[in-house]
Design a protein around this nucleic acid. Structure first.
Lengths: 135, 135
DNA sequence: GATATGCCGACCAGTTTGGTGGGTTATTTG
DNA sequence: CAAATAACCCACCAAACTGGTCGGCATATC
């Protein structure tokens, strides 16, 4: 399983924000309620999206979160890389080259690498706008 | 990480068998030595390939394993599905439809489904023959 | 100063990963 | 037949990951 609930929840939050933020900030509590996700768990996921620059959060009453750019400019790939850390299907692609002494002669590495590009290319081609409900 | 060492080891074993079995059976100990994989760990992986019909093992002295068909007819997808169980990138694709009450209205499911097809189509298109070293 | 909100760190139970160890069954060879 | 060889099976184990929870603090508004 490449993508855990962490990444999937993050994606749903971003879509929720895209569909509900009419220039106003949306409280995490609201999103958690609508998406039926534990508020406490969301608290652990959203900071990654903030530090990644995808969303902006402000404290205090009336605060909440807002997208920093239009849904057309946010891709699923961006969100997942921020929350899952790495989308590579196998470990040997990301570790240091010298960790695997067989790299030079490895029959399978080029295939893993191609699969990796395939996945990333696809996810980077899907925008939040394309996932929103038509109105 | 979609594919663990289990699946990657299995793939390397199959390639090793394809490159070294000249109609003879190859002992697991030999493969483990060549591939630098723990013999004990391999013992836990290979039965899945046997019951999946990809390889055949015989007991006793002079025994070992052999592919049941030519490398051209074995794909990476087959091996990984046998050893990893499931290649789906997200959990919600494989669980029962009613496990997720949002399925009908889910913005993300079609995308996950397409990603799943993409991955499986790619892996089913790569044969062991195409990964073998040219001689 | 009360209230609402984001944020941060510690903790926790269950599952998965990547093994190890010890024995049993089947087959060949001396 | 006995010994060696090799597949096979079962129980166990440490470390990491997953999917959370709890409590408190920082910041902003009324």
């Amino acid at each position: 399983m490449i993508i855990s609930t962490r990444g999937r929840y993050a994606l749903r939050v971003i879509i929720d924000l895209a569909e509900h933020s009419a220039s106003d900030y949306v409280a995490m509590r609201e999103i958690a309620g609508r998406q039926e996700i534990s508020l406490k768990y969301l608290e652990k996921i959203l900071p990654a999206l903030v530090s990644g620059g995808l969303i902006q959060g402000i404290h205090g009453k009336g605060g909440g979160y807002r997208l920093t750019r239009p849904p057309e400019e946010i891709t699923v790939g961006q969100i997942l890389r921020l929350t899952e850390g790495d989308l590579s299907p196998v470990a040997c692609l990301t570790c240091d080259a010298d960790a695997c002494t067989r790299t030079a002669d490895c029959r399978t590495r080029p295939m893993w690498s191609e699969l990796n590009s395939l996945i990333n290319r696809y996810l980077d081609g899907v925008t939040i706008a394309s996932l929103m409900h038509p109105e």
